[in-house]
Design a protein around this nucleic acid. Structure first.
Lengths: 209, 209
DNA sequence: TAGATTGTTAATCGATTAACAATC
DNA sequence: TAGATTGTTAATCGATTAACAATC
């Protein structure tokens, strides 16, 4: 039930607003103007006001924005109050790091199970979770009302896993596999592509020397 | 020594071109038109031609592009032929995962040392590397001509570490700490912000239901 | 040659910035 | 009230798409 059509550019700035407002809150700062926020966050004051007004008039003329109220509003816009059940597939180095990542709670995501295809990994314990056989993905997703899958597997086989996940009703994928997954349009995929990030760094480095 | 001013939008598409061309190469496909590439990569043919022509005329009228030649050209544009020495700071879960990440070689980056501030981590071995005390960062950077630092540390203290790195001549940072680092303008920072990615997924999930 | 497809210019679209009336 | 700052419209800027002459 989105309001207007919010552009991806705006959406990707929202977490940054949330983070900076959280920092201000930690410093007990109660109000901030778009100009002051501009100085610390680096977007123009005009852009900040435009961005926020996509979602509502959170400010007050002559005063600015109440930090705590705005922080909470953006949290709601980001859906941080919603709860989602997640599974993590691929319990290798990266998968284990992500499984231990503390940010999930803040985003309302709860990991319910870990999977791996490697027989030697199955049965090992990571945090509170025993690593399960990938064959059990379908049954676990169905029985635990899993909404989201976190993919920490190589690109080979990733599409096949996603097809299986989609077929049992998964609605979102946090994808660390270096591949562009094909999914029905009502399934959300958010990619974290380390290779693309590293190659971008390589490009920028080679430009300066 | 950049050519024109290439926009970030274009730069961030380059790794994707490289990846898809690599896939085509693996399939022994020798030539491709912008239209065919458009069908598989999802950018418009027009955009593909515009993007590539920022760097040179790699195609041939009536024929299209030679896959191998274009793959190699984009590799060069990305600076994948350049060699950089790197250190990794923060050998926790994520740091270890990144240290084991195989993508570095392809990008020409070689990790020379790992550091951690936790006394209990120091001396442990990850791959071929003993984890060193963070106090030794300066001397190791100087003695090994380190170009790049990979930051896998919490946000508290990250800016201070970066200041130290900059003072001994680091030129690039691959930053996994959830903070916007301040660096001189000739130092490159490429961020991988897992929280921002996760919050974006949360937003998009909350939109569909 | 005829057909295909590029390289490139022009047109369009969307995002950012500027300006200012509204109003707290 | 006077000053400050928003919300919002208008102007600008930049990126994407369309079109087509050049040419392989």
């Amino acid at each position: 039930m989105g309001t207007k059509n919010i552009s991806m550019a705006v959406i990707r700035r929202l977490p940054k607003y949330h983070r900076y407002l959280g920092d201000l809150l930690d410093k007990d700062i109660q109000r901030i103007s778009s100009k002051e926020l501009s100085d610390i966050i680096g977007f123009t004051a005009s852009q900040i006001r435009q961005d926020l007004n996509n979602f509502g008039g959170f400010g007050q003329q002559g005063y600015g924005y109440n930090v705590e109220a705005l922080y909470n509003e953006i949290g709601k816009i980001l859906g941080l109050d919603k709860k989602y059940n997640a599974i993590l597939i691929g319990a290798g180095n990266l998968g284990q790091a992500i499984a231990n990542y503390s940010g999930f709670r803040k985003a309302g995501f709860e990991i319910k199970a870990l999977f791996d295809a490697n027989p030697r990994m199955i049965g090992l314990k990571i945090r509170d979770f025993e690593i399960l056989d990938s064959q059990e993905i379908e049954s676990v997703v169905k029985e635990n009302e899993i909404d989201i899958a976190i993919l920490c597997i190589p690109k080979n086989g990733a599409q096949e896993i996603v097809n299986r996940l989609v077929s049992v009703g998964i609605k979102g994928v946090w994808n660390f596999a270096p591949i562009d997954l094909e999914v029905p349009k009502d399934v959300i995929v958010e990619n974290v592509n380390l290779t693309e990030s590293l190659f971008t760094l390589s490009y920028l480095m080679s430009e300066i020397e």
